[in-house]
Design a protein around this nucleic acid. Structure first.
Lengths: 181, 181
DNA sequence: ATATTTATGTCAGCCATGTTGACATATTTC
DNA sequence: GAAATATGTCAACATGGCTGACATAAATAT
């Protein structure tokens, strides 16, 4: 209930074709909805993290290390788009407190490959569980192809040059988790 | 091109029905895509804002004041979910530099209703334009009902108790902008 | 009419997390 | 052996959250 308010408005999205003339009307609804949805999306983990004296920065690191084990530090910097000094601060805490370990690369011994400990995995999965609940609840209210539609939309929103990298990242991690499906 | 990688995976989203037994597999793809999409979504405005020595906080304030003129300070606090001290800092700068003005409420003279100046509107619209370009580009790559699908998904992702408020906010602003359509 | 509540502003200080710049160390590659 | 690479670290700074305390004006309640 209550989602008739907005969804019944005509689509004047300017997506199809704004053939040159005057500046298109901003797509207000999606701009604002992205803000609100993301705000709430990150809020569930925040509460749990606070109990561990961790913040969002720790969450992001823990998430990607858990999801993509063996990541190089450089990969993580690339993904998060932050500086190594910023990463260093939170990564050090995660390592010191036993959530993440670093192993020397086998081929290249300069590399410090990142892995979660069981303790790190437990926390990462707990946080992912919260976000999954929210997403599942949302998808449950929509049609059967809502997952697919959301995925396509979000992929298309990513910078064109990063898009392939992101999709490969996800696909690779997906394969790794379920080796032969 | 390139969006076949992911979209061909089966949907094991756990949305439909996880009847109790064991913990559902996290919905990794949407969790990560939300991160990447939002990261890029806010990055375009950031570059412009930097030229004005403004940050994301200024953007959020300017956006909501532009989009919902006459907002009370209390409304803005509610929407942004930050403290009045945090808001005060950036709002003061926006007022001092002539992007936002505050008018005494007519009924309640304690209120300081917020409005953008022409200068403020120009900046707000420029930033909204950047985000609209990205969204329009994304929607353009998808089917004709992608806008609707994205809207539904994002609405469903919002906290249940805030959902109605958000939708009313958007609908109201929408009506105000195009008085009789 | 006075007391209380409400809307807003402000000061001071703290914390998390981003930044730049410089430099150190180990290892690989040329 | 020299140069490039992967990583770590120190110092300093900026932004934008936070709490707590307190101030003012206007509305509302007793």
């Amino acid at each position: 209930m209550a989602d008739i308010n907005i969804s019944s408005l005509p689509d004047r999205s300017a997506a199809q074709a704004d053939q040159g003339s005057h500046p298109a009307e901003p797509i207000w609804d999606l701009i604002e909805l992205l803000f609100f949805a993301y705000r709430d999306f990150v809020s569930d983990p925040d509460d749990v993290l606070a109990k561990f004296s961790f913040g969002r920065a720790h969450h992001r690191v823990l998430h990607f290390v858990n999801r993509h084990p063996g990541m190089k530090v450089a990969d993580l910097l690339e993904v998060l788009k932050i500086t190594k000094q910023s990463l260093g601060r939170v990564l050090k805490q995660l390592v010191d407190q036993g959530y993440v370990v670093q192993k020397e690369g086998e081929n290249d011994r300069r590399q410090r490959l990142l892995y979660v400990t069981p303790k790190g995995e437990a926390l990462a999965m707990r946080l992912a569980g919260l976000q999954t609940e929210r997403i599942a609840r949302a998808l449950g209210q929509l049609g059967p192809n809502a997952h697919e539609a959301a995925r396509r939309f979000l992929v298309a929103m990513i910078d064109a040059d990063g898009r392939d990298g992101v999709q490969k990242l996800i696909a690779r991690a997906d394969r790794a988790r379920r080796p032969r499906s």
